[in-house]
Structure formats: C-alpha cells, structure tokens
Design a protein around this nucleic acid. Structure first.
Length: 481
RNA sequence: CGGAGGGUAGCGCAGCUCGGUAGCGCGCAGCGUUCGGGACGCUGAGGUCGCGGGUUCGAAUCCCGCCCCUCCGACCA
C-alpha cells in the first residue's frame, strides 16, 4: 500500500484505475468487464442510494422488483429499443441442461418487462399515475469497460412511471431531472448541467431524453443521470392502455430514469487529487477518522490517549459518521496517508500533547498539509467538526464549479470551437442536424452532450458553429466518457 | 473489431537479445525496538514464469497457435 500513485495531472486514466483499487473501492472480476465492488465502495453506493431513495419516496415513488430475465421477444417490441440495445445484449439460451424454447435476455434496462406488467396492472385513469422505482443490476456487453464508468454489469436504480397525459409524463421526467441535479450538487458537490439530449444521443425509444452532465477532472464530460419522456412509444409497444373519464381507451404516457454506479466514478474524478480520493462529507461513508498517537505505555500514555479517543468518539458519533483507527503496528504518519488515500474528509489526531491540553487536531482532507490543520478544544470539537464538514462540502462544490467555468467556452467560430473542446466544454449554437453532429465528432472527437435547459434565447441571426445554417439553440459539446 | 503496449510471488518490476531450472523492492507472518506526516532490525512464508503445442539433453528465455489485461479509436448509464 506504500508508494506514490500515478499523478492525476500526468496520467489521469492511470491515476483513476490505480486509485479505485488502492482505495479499495473495487477490483476486477475474473470475467471481462465485470467488477467487484468492495465494502468501502459499496458503502459509498449505499450513501448514494440512501439520498436518492429518500428523494424518490418524498415525491411519491415506491420501490418494487422486476425479474432479471426478459423474454427475447419483449425487447423486439419497440423498434428503436431493439435497434439500440441488441448489440450489447447478454442472451441466455440454455437452462436446466436444455436449450430454451425462447432465449432470455439478461435485462439491459427494464422498460420491456415493466411495460408488460403495466399493461396488466393499468386499466383505468384511476390507476394512474404509477410511480415505481427499482434498485437492481443490469447487463450491457460493452466494448471497452472501465471500473465504475462502464462495466458489463452495473448497479443502478431505474424509475418507471405511467401517466394519463403527455404533460404529466413531461413534468415527471423534468422533476426527476431536477432531483438528480439537486442530489449531484448538494450531496456529491458536483455542479451539473441539466439538458436535453439531441436526437442521435437520446435513449432508444424515447420521445425526449434529459441528462445531467458533469465535468470531470480531466475536463471530459460524464453523463451522471438520465430521465426520459418515453411518450406513448412503449405504451403502444406493450399495450399499456387505460379508460379515461369518458370511457375512451387511451395509451399511457410513460417515463424512465436512472442513476448508476457510474456516479461513483464521477465523485472520484471530480474531487480526487494526487493523494487519493476526496469524498464529499455528505456522501462519505466515514466522515471523520480519529488517529490516536502514543509511544509505549510505560507511563500510562497509551491508555490515557485511548481513553480520550473513546471520549471524543462518543462525543461525535451522535452527529457524525466517525471511526477510530487503533490498528497496532502502523505509525500515525502511515495512517494519515492511508486515510487521505481513502478520501475521508476530516481527520482527528489525538496524542499526549492533546490529552494534556484537552484538545484535538483537526485536519481537512481538501486542504493539504499544515494549512488544513488546526487544534481545537475538546469541548468545542463536535460543533467545530460539524462546521468543518459543511465547509468542506461547500468548498468542494465551489472548487468544482470554478474548474468547470474556467474550462467552459463560448467559441465565436469553428476554429475557436476546436480549441474549446480540447480544453473542456464548448457552449455553441448549432443547427440541430444529426449530420452536423457527426461531422463535429469526426473532426474534433467532441460529442453533443446536451442542449442546456437554462440558456439565453438566441438571436434570430445566430448561425450553427460548424455549418453556418440557422441555429435555434446552444448545445454543450465535449469529449465524453 | 482496428492501432499500441503488456502478462514472471498479493502489488510493482528485473531476467529473455546470447537456453542451464528464478531474483529485487514493497506488501504479508513471527519476535524485538519504534510511533506528532508513509519507522527499523532479525527470522520466515509465498512462484505449474497467462494457456496449449513444438524445437532441444535441457525452455521464463527460441518457434507456432490461443487467451487475458491496459491505453488510443468505433459502442455506451
């Protein structure tokens, strides 16, 4: 565990890969593209789950569970859906030692199976809306896997709702997008851009897809959550119909939305530094780590320190997720580095000097070295620790926002545009044509991340940054994960 | 699937050109001394050299085939 990790500024990919494993978030599995999420990484996922789940429930959603296997024919019912997903399906052809009558797809997402059930459950306008979420795993046979960012199997939540009108479905899709954005910014301290996906980037089968897009530490974009208004496409494919007040048979309007373990990748890539992870306090499984410092126990030093440590832990544990690192055989300096690698936002050092003065030393993870260290009287420790955690949370967000803004450009012409996407995000007017998007990608490697929902109206004379045809809105272009 | 680099102890690597039966650092175990920014000493455990075949008296090393991993592209939450 000793040794430098790759420098973030020099080799971001290598830094990321090493960090995920060194911090014991995850490890490679024996099957290509699959990952093992280790207890520390899973604890982080549980924090994410907790925050999102609470928000879903507050807005009237309930959890359920649908099966892993989907009859192959279900996937084929929605034309764009099958076209979008068939290249990356895992298909089960044998079971119980015999070839199956119909192959089963391991769900890449659950619109199909849930649509099937919704068609059975929904009969009347009185049954609507249906607001269901599930936490589960899905499988997509990706070409180029990366820990957390793109794994063959991943964990996520997928919400699936059915409504009586387009407006209600649209409102739902937007409400969830707002929840995702609020969660990313408030809990993960990651500023995100809320936007609509272009036609070529939208979810297969959706009427309109929304996403939150974040800028990672290497200035590339990452889609951190999506919310789709599926229109009546899936309702027609799966026959999800209800009788309205006038006894007329109507197709439902459905939505789906998801956030995956990829979100953990974003937390790593946005906040981490050369020392390792920096976890935002609200998501950190361990918010404060107490490191006892003592020599031998001839003069009772060790027992005095440990006694004070126990007292401090008890003092804090009511309001803070705090743990003690009382492992023998590791020096304090080693532990400092270890917990920095693991991204614990606050470290509490407690040694003989502190026992004598009834104080403890607080060290902030986001400020390296002496700058982030301060001695605090034990009587004020709880209040001060709580305050510092909030300050770290805010300061991480501010840092990430300033970074994004420093690397977001509004190019005047295509030459500037090319330079802009080399540096980060380019916010530029465009014509809305898929062919132009494709050309931009070929020429610059940048893709259309989204059309930001919040943007100034364009002047009628505005022209597409690449082709010069009339533009009606701005899009964010960037190299993306 | 195209381009590049790799696979030797848990991790990082050397050894391969020039064949002679495997080594270094870290980590791990035990004991002792240490402990306010990655301590040190001694002792020790740990390897079918990615897999299969071939050449040879003898292969980590040479030849053939395959598999896997990482990075850059096409795909993607």
């Amino acid at each position: 565990m000793v040794g430098e990790i790759a420098r973030r500024s020099e080799d971001f990919s290598e830094w990321y890969n090493e960090l995920v494993r060194r911090a014991e978030l995850a490890d490679y599995a024996p099957v290509r593209g699959c990952m093992v999420i280790r207890p520390y990484g899973y604890a982080l996922w549980e924090q994410i789950q907790r925050g999102l789940d609470q928000r879903f429930k507050e807005t009237g959603h309930r959890n359920a569970y649908f099966p892993l296997f989907i009859p192959y024919s279900f996937i084929e019912k929605e034309a764009e859906h099958v076209r979008g997903f068939s290249p990356q399906l895992a298909v089960v052809t044998h079971g119980g030692g015999e070839e199956l009558e119909e192959p089963l797809v391991v769900r890449p997402t659950s619109e199909a199976i849930i649509g099937h059930l919704y068609s059975k459950w929904i009969k009347s306008y009185r049954d609507l809306p249906v607001l269901i979420n599930q936490w589960c795993n899905v499988v997509r046979w990706e070409m180029r896997p990366r820990l957390f960012l793109r794994t063959t199997e991943f964990l996520w939540q997928e919400g699936h709702t059915a409504h009586a009108t387009f407006e209600e479905a649209e409102e739902e899709a937007r409400k969830i997008l707002d929840i995702y954005a609020e969660f990313a910014e408030e809990e993960a301290a990651i500023p995100v851009i809320k936007g609509r996906k272009s036609e070529s980037e939208k979810f297969p089968g959706a009427l309109v897809s929304y996403s939150i897009e974040g800028m990672m530490g290497d200035r590339r974009a990452l889609q951190m959550g999506t919310s789709h208004n599926l229109g009546q496409n899936f309702a027609r494919a799966f026959n999800i119909q209800y009788l309205d007040r006038n006894n007329q048979l109507q197709y439902c309007w459905t939505t789906s939305w998801g956030v995956s373990t990829r979100f953990i990748g974003a937390v790593i890539m946005v906040h981490g530094d050369d020392q390792g992870l920096i976890l935002p306090p609200r998501l950190a499984p361990i918010q404060a780590i107490i490191v006892p410092i003592y020599k031998g126990d001839e003069d009772g030093e060790k027992s005095q320190v440990l006694e004070a440590v126990a007292k401090v832990k008890a003092l804090l544990s009511g309001s803070i997720r705090v743990e003690v690192d009382d492992r023998e055989g590791y020096t304090p300096g080693w532990k400092f580095n270890e917990w920095e690698l693991r991204g614990v936002p606050l470290r509490i050092e407690l040694g003989p000097k502190d026992v004598a003065q009834e104080q403890a030393v607080l060290a902030r993870r986001d400020l390296p070295g002496k700058e982030g260290k301060r001695a605090v009287p034990q009587a004020a420790l709880r209040e001060e620790a709580e305050r510092l955690l909030e300050e770290i949370q805010r300061s991480l967000y501010k840092r990430a926002l300033e970074f994004r803004e420093a690397h977001t450009h509004e190019p005047k012409d295509y030459e500037e545009f090319k330079a802009a996407v080399e540096d980060g995000f380019a916010l530029a007017p465009w014509c809305g044509e898929a062919e132009c998007e494709r050309a931009i990608q070929e020429e610059t490697k940048a893709t259309n991340r989204c059309i930001p929902l919040e943007q100034e109206p364009l002047s009628p004379k505005a022209r597409c940054i690449r082709c010069g045809r009339p533009a009606k809105e701005r899009a964010v272009f960037a190299r993306a994960y």
